[in-house]
Every structure is written in C-alpha cells, then in structure tokens.
Simulated assay, not measured.
Amino acid sequence: MEGLAVFRGATAHPEEANCECHWGSAEELALLKVPDIRLAPDLLRRTWQPSDWRDHGSVLRRILPQLAGALVDSRSESFRDRDEIGLSLARGNWQDWPREQAAAVREFLHAFWAHSLVTVGPVGHVSLTLALCVEASGELSPWLDVWEALEHPMADRNLAEAVDTWDYDLLADELPWSTWSDKDEKLALLTAWLTRHAPARLRASNAPDDLLQRLRLIGLTGPARWHDPHWPGYSY
C-alpha cells in the first residue's frame, strides 16, 4: 500500500456537504476536510457508501489510504463490503484522476487481487475481491488472466471454492455478484473462462467429482443442463 502515499494530505472539497440527518454531523463532515486524520470505522463506511457527494472523487481520495488498510483486514466491515466499495470506486472515476493517483489505485487493486488468490480467508473472500476489482475497473478479463497465469496450490483451492460458491447463480445464468454495467457480457466471459480453464486445474488438485460435475453443467444450456443426471436439484 506504499503507492497510496500519493493520497496523503488529500481532503474533500472545501464546499463538500451532505445531509446531517441522513449522513452525519457537521463535526464529522469537517473531518473530511482535514487531511490524514483516521476516521472511526462507521464514519469510514458512511463516507465511501453514499452516491450523492458533490465531488465523489475528492472524498475517496481523502479516505483511500485508510480504506485500503481496512480492505485487507479480514476483521473489518470494509473487508465484507468489497463489492460495494468497487462500485464506489467506479463512481469516483478514478481512472480519470491525475496519472500518479490513478496508477496507485491500479497498483493497489492488482496487488490486493494477487494476494487474495494465494491467501487463506473466509469462505467467499476471493469472490468478493474479484467483484471489487471488476466493478472498480469495469473489466473482468484482466483479473481472470492473472488467476489463470498464477500457478499456486492456494490459487487452485480458491478456484474450487469459487466454483462451489458461484454455481448456484451461474446455473441460473446469473452473475454471482451485483454489477453496474455489462452484466450479460461479464456472465458470458466468466462462464467461458471457467468451463475452459477450471476443469483441468481442479482435476489436477483432486477436486471432488460433485464439484467437477457442477462445473461441467455450467457449460451446458437449457434442457441439457436441467435434465442432466448430475443436476444438483436446485430450485429457483
């Protein structure tokens, strides 16, 4: 997270405002206009979460070093809210920030993603990190490319867990996280990548046959999927 030092000294716009009855007090708002003061976890959440800041980008720049630290802490609220934080980053249009700042965000996302892939964590932690990266960047393929290129036992274990986590949604032709754009395109990319890349990798890591069968079903469509003898009996 050293690259995020570029945001030290950042503040929200001097004229930034929000509704006291819905967001917080004038004293809390004033903290966003003073650099580098740590915010209480609840205030941090209330700061990245709203969609009605006048200058969402400046608010995010104010909190990014602390928010990044919370994201990698499995005990934090932010760790559990990664998919929503990805949407907040997208609203901030971080790709259009000054070059050094945009590069720092990109570097953090890539480092956080690579770290998540080789880390043991709570069930679904890789799925949430992927959702964060995809929603923040608006792209899916680059993150899947990193996973595909990474030869590591934990990356294989996390792939098996992701298939086990995602199959209920994917078998209903639904993307396994909420997205702000291009849902059908992301669903098609994820399905194609899993059915092309995951079977051999999961067989090599001795994944159970039940999981491999559900993965195979993701590659089928219509009656061929539902009438297959290995259909898991899901009801929707």
Rank of each mutant, 00 (worst) to 15 (best):
L39G: 08
P41E: 11
L43W: 02
R46I: 04
W48S: 05
W48P: 00
W48L: 09
Q49M: 12
P50C: 08
P50Y: 08
S51M: 07
D55M: 03
D55W: 09
S58I: 01
V59L: 03
L60T: 00
R61P: 06
P65K: 02
Q66F: 08
Q66K: 10
A68G: 07
A68V: 02
G69I: 02
V72N: 03
D73I: 12
S74C: 12
S74W: 08
S76F: 05
E77A: 12
S78A: 15
S78F: 01
D81L: 08
R82D: 00
R82V: 01
G86K: 01
G86W: 00
S88R: 02
L89C: 07
R91F: 00
G92I: 06
N93L: 09
D96Q: 14
R99T: 15
E100Q: 14
A102N: 08
A103I: 09
A104D: 01
V105P: 08
E107I: 00
E107Y: 01
F108R: 05
H110R: 15
A111H: 11
A114I: 02
A114L: 12
V118M: 07
V118W: 02
V118G: 02
V120N: 12
V123H: 14
G124E: 11
S127H: 09
T129M: 13
T129P: 04
T129N: 12
L132A: 03
A136M: 05
A136C: 07
S137E: 08
E139T: 07
E139A: 12
L140D: 05
S141G: 09
L144K: 06
L144V: 04
D145G: 09
D145Q: 15
W147H: 13
W147M: 12
W147L: 14
A149S: 14
L150N: 06
L150V: 04
E151I: 10
P153Q: 11
M154I: 10
A155F: 06
D156K: 02
R157Y: 10
N158R: 07
E161A: 15
A162M: 15
D164P: 00
D164K: 03
T165A: 14
T165S: 15
W166T: 01
D169H: 14
L171M: 10
A172H: 14
D173G: 03
D173S: 11
E174W: 09
E174H: 13
T179Q: 08
L187M: 06
